[in-house]
Every structure is written in C-alpha cells, then in structure tokens.
C-alpha cells in the first residue's frame, strides 16, 4: 500500500512543515517515507508545495505528480492540482480561503475552514495542522495517537508550548464535523 500526498498553498502557510509532520508520522509507524519540497523563490511568498509518500514498500520516485490525497490551502493550488488527483482520490480544501467547490465527481472532497478554526483557537499559524488532522481522520493514513507521538520528534523539546499548540490543531481538525 502506497499513499501519495501533495500539500499545496502559499509560502508561509506551513505546507512544507505539515508535510514534514506527515512524513515523521509515517516513519513512526515504520512505513517507508519520502518528503520533497518545492524550493526556490516561491518559498518566499509564492505558491509552495511538497510531495509526501507513505508506503509499505521502498519508495520509488519521490515526486508526486498524481496524488491519492491532495491538501490545498489556496485557490491557485486547487486549480492546478484538482485534475491531477487520481480517480477515487481525496481532496482536502481549506474552505476559509477557497470559495469554490471541487468540480470533479470521481474524487471525495472534504471542506474544512481550517484557517478560521485555527484563528478561533488562538493559533492562527497552525491551519496547516488543522487540515492535516482532518486528513488523518478521513484517510486513516496514520493513527491519531501515533500522529501526536510523532509530533514530539518534529517539534524540539525546548519548544514544548509549540508541541501543545500543534497537537491542539491536529485534534481540532481530527474532530471537526462538517
């Protein structure tokens, strides 16, 4: 079983970090993982994305052209990657920032106002983790418990407050009901 995930949004929304967390979560479950960021000037405010692959077998190409799971945090990313998503794939949309719906009928679309939820929780920079929480719930790609454990690897010990905030965000997304 191999799951190819593409996370895309504006630079600064933490899409690379969200992907990194997901990769760590896969690693925590002893899966084969890869994480590949877009790099270059777009990291400084343009559109950023990262490819994350979790698999039971060695990962071939780390580049996700056709995601099984797509997370989008801005409209250009939805426009760009909606049609690339595999048939039967899952698309997660931050509905605070993207007004339109997914047009394809052969994928499962999930809408979560991640940015709004994060703002209400007082952690406005963690919309990325809110949407990852929702994705974990709907895909079962990793367990919620393991996701929380893996976060400890990503967030260093001296930033304990950040760890709590990240888990809070994950939890909010995981338990969000549309």
């Amino acid at each position: 079983m191999t799951t190819q995930v593409l996370i895309a949004g504006f630079g600064g929304q933490g899409v690379l970090f969200a992907g990194k967390c997901l990769a760590y979560e896969g690693l925590y479950e002893n899966k084969q993982v890869s994480w590949l960021p877009s790099y270059g000037p777009e990291m400084r405010g343009g559109t950023a994305n990262c490819s994350v692959i979790l698999s039971d077998e060695p990962v071939g190409s780390p580049i996700v052209n056709n995601p099984d799971v797509l997370i989008v945090m801005n409209l250009p990313s939805l426009d760009k990657y909606e049609n690339a998503t595999v048939k039967g794939g899952k698309i997660f949309v931050d509905s605070t920032l993207i007004a339109r719906k997914v047009e394809r009928a052969d994928v499962d679309a999930f809408y979560i106002p991640a940015t709004k939820i994060a703002q209400e929780l007082g952690i406005p920079t963690l919309a990325n983790m809110v949407i990852v929480g929702k994705m974990i719930k709907e895909t079962g790609i990793v367990t919620f418990e393991n996701a929380c454990e893996a976060m400890k690897k990503v967030v260093s010990a001296r930033h304990q407050d950040l760890l709590d905030a990240n888990i809070k965000a994950l939890n909010a997304g995981y338990n969000y009901a549309e």
């Binding site: 990194k20 990769a23 690693l27 084969q32 993982v33 890869s34 994480w35 590949l36 960021p37 790099y39 990962v59 780390p62 580049i63």
Partner: peptide, 9 residues
C-alpha cells in the same frame, strides 16, 4: 536538486 532537497529516513 531533488536528492539534495528531499527528506527520507
């Protein structure tokens, strides 16, 4: 660039 930028275990 890919090999340099990608993360793997």
């Amino acid at each position: 660039g890919t090999m340099g930028q990608m993360m793997e275990p």
